[in-house]
Write a protein that binds this DNA or RNA. Structure first.
Lengths: 193, 193
DNA sequence: ACCTGAACACCGTTCAAGT
DNA sequence: ACCTGAACACCGTTCAAGT
């Protein structure tokens, strides 16, 4: 994971990074290849030398997105021994997207676009959800909040609720609303206080 | 509300109905005027005789959407005296969208498209949220689940969570997942059991 | 290998011309 | 009044042709 980007992947990385930011604000349909190319400093046609199609580019974006999310979650649980403390930190990544120019989770936006999503992209988006749910389930069991049998279901409910909070807060461009919603989930008992 | 559609609004109604279905599956960006026109049986250019622009058409769609939602919610609370029973029925409208070819809430989709939404549309989308939150808050107070001071906040949390559940279920085209998520919210204490 | 101009099919929109 | 073909400037995308 550390020594993979030596020389040739540089411009692909630039493309992926720029595409991720655009897709987090405009979705798959709103990912404008001319605008993306301009941001990277090439012509739109040149994009096709790095990725065979918009679908494959978006799949690469979504794949890196869940890989980064998985690494970030592992970093949290590696650094924080207390599982309850880990669960308290979970909403922070969703908050960070809003703090970054009112952006949202790439996977949530693309989930809305389900009907128009190429299969290769759909797969990666689903994996993002799986990664989050698996991590949450593990923390819930470790924290002894639910038994192993109910962990996956509760984890999915937390993921859905936090996603919904991010979406609602984006609609008002109001990050404080996100914080209030998360606090309300805690007060109601969905998330550990 | 009853005697407004006599003769001239007929085709406008057909356009709005078809546009609503398309927007619930593809969003504002994915609302293709040529495809919409074909479904209605006219040419795209003819659409402009009924609505001055795509933005105005989408605003009319979103406006009717929240008006219908408001009427449906009023129908529930008028027919069901018990506020707790009303709250139990609330997720049903979101479920119905999923049951209708895995569609989703128009407002949720458009909220994701926030950055690309004309202001006239944005306003109507926000009103949909307000209508839902106001009704939920009223039911929560009547049911004595929360006090008047916390009603709005709790109502927003419920709306966000239910929206998130719909989005997640759409991503798997799995309506049973929606049911499970709602049940989990109830078990956790976010919604009344 | 990497890049591009030019072309393609498509989009929202306009408008003169039909009924 | 309502509709339309044709055109406009634009878009994402493709490809033959450059270096």
């Amino acid at each position: 994971m550390a020594n993979q980007a030596s020389t040739s992947t540089r411009s692909s990385d630039k493309i992926l990074a720029a595409a991720t930011k655009i897709a987090q604000a405009h979705g798959y349909g709103g990912l404008n290849l001319r605008a993306l190319a301009e941001e990277v400093g090439i012509k739109a046609a040149s994009l096709y030398h790095h990725f065979p199609s918009k679908a494959d580019l978006a799949a690469a974006v979504a794949k890196r997105y869940w890989e980064d999310a998985a690494a970030a979650l592992e970093a949290i649980s590696a650094k924080t021994p207390d599982a309850v403390a880990c669960l308290r930190k979970y909403p922070a990544t969703f908050r960070a997207a809003l703090a970054n120019d009112n952006r949202m989770c790439l996977a949530s936006f693309m989930t809305a676009e389900y009907d128009d999503l190429p299969d290769v992209v759909k797969t990666e988006v689903l994996t993002f959800v799986d990664v989050n749910v698996a991590w949450l389930a593990k923390m819930l069991v470790t924290a002894e909040i639910v038994g192993a049998k109910d962990a996956r279901t509760r984890a999915r409910a937390i993921f859905a609720a936090v996603s919904g909070a991010q979406l609602m807060a984006r609609g008002r461009a109001d990050i404080k609303l996100f914080d209030t919603l998360i606090d309300t989930y805690r007060a109601a008992g969905l998330l550990p206080a």
